[in-house]
Simulated assay, not measured.
Amino acid sequence: MITSYILDFGLIEIYEDYIKVTINEGVTVSPEHNDVLLEMVEKHYKNKAFLYLTHRINSYAVNPTIYLETAKIENLIGFAVVSDNPIQEKQTKLEKAFFSKELKRFDDIESALQWKTELLEKYHGTFY
Rank of each mutant, 00 (worst) to 15 (best):
G26H: 10
V41G: 02
F127W: 09
H124D: 14
I77Q: 03
A80I: 07
N58S: 07
K104V: 03
I87P: 06
A97V: 08
K104C: 13
F50S: 09
Y60Q: 11
I57E: 08
Y15P: 06
T70P: 05
H55W: 05
A80S: 11
F127N: 10
Y128V: 08
F98A: 09
T117C: 01
F50V: 01
G78I: 01
Y18S: 03
P64K: 13
K20Q: 14
H44D: 00
I109R: 12
V21T: 05
N24A: 03
T65I: 06
L11C: 06
L37E: 13
N47V: 01
T65S: 07
K93G: 02
N24V: 03
K46C: 07
T28W: 04
H44I: 00
E42C: 02
S100T: 04
L94G: 01
V41D: 02
N24D: 13
K101C: 03
A61G: 05
I73E: 09
Y52D: 03
L120C: 07
V36S: 07
R56Q: 07
D17Y: 14
K122P: 00
I19S: 04
P31K: 11
E118Y: 15
E16H: 14
E102Q: 13
F9L: 03
V36Q: 06
W115P: 04
F99Y: 15
T54Y: 08
A97W: 15
L68A: 07
E16C: 14
V82H: 12
I77A: 00
Q88P: 01
Y67F: 10
G125M: 04
T3D: 08
I6C: 10
I12G: 02
K20I: 00
K90A: 10
T126H: 12
E32W: 08
K46D: 10
V81I: 08
K46V: 00
Q91D: 06
T65Q: 15
E121I: 02
E89A: 05
V36I: 11
D108Q: 10
L53P: 00
S59E: 06
T70M: 12
D35W: 08
N34C: 06
H55C: 01
L120K: 13
Y45K: 05
V82N: 09
I19E: 02
E16F: 12
L120W: 12
G125S: 10
Q114N: 10
V21A: 02
Q114S: 12
K90D: 04
D84G: 05
V29D: 08
H55S: 07
N47F: 10
K104Y: 11
D8H: 13
E121T: 13
Y15N: 11
I14R: 05
I6Y: 15
S100C: 05
A49E: 03
L113G: 02
A71Y: 11
Q91T: 05
T126M: 15
E118L: 14
E89H: 12
H124N: 09
F127P: 00
V21S: 02
Q91G: 07
K20H: 10
T70K: 09
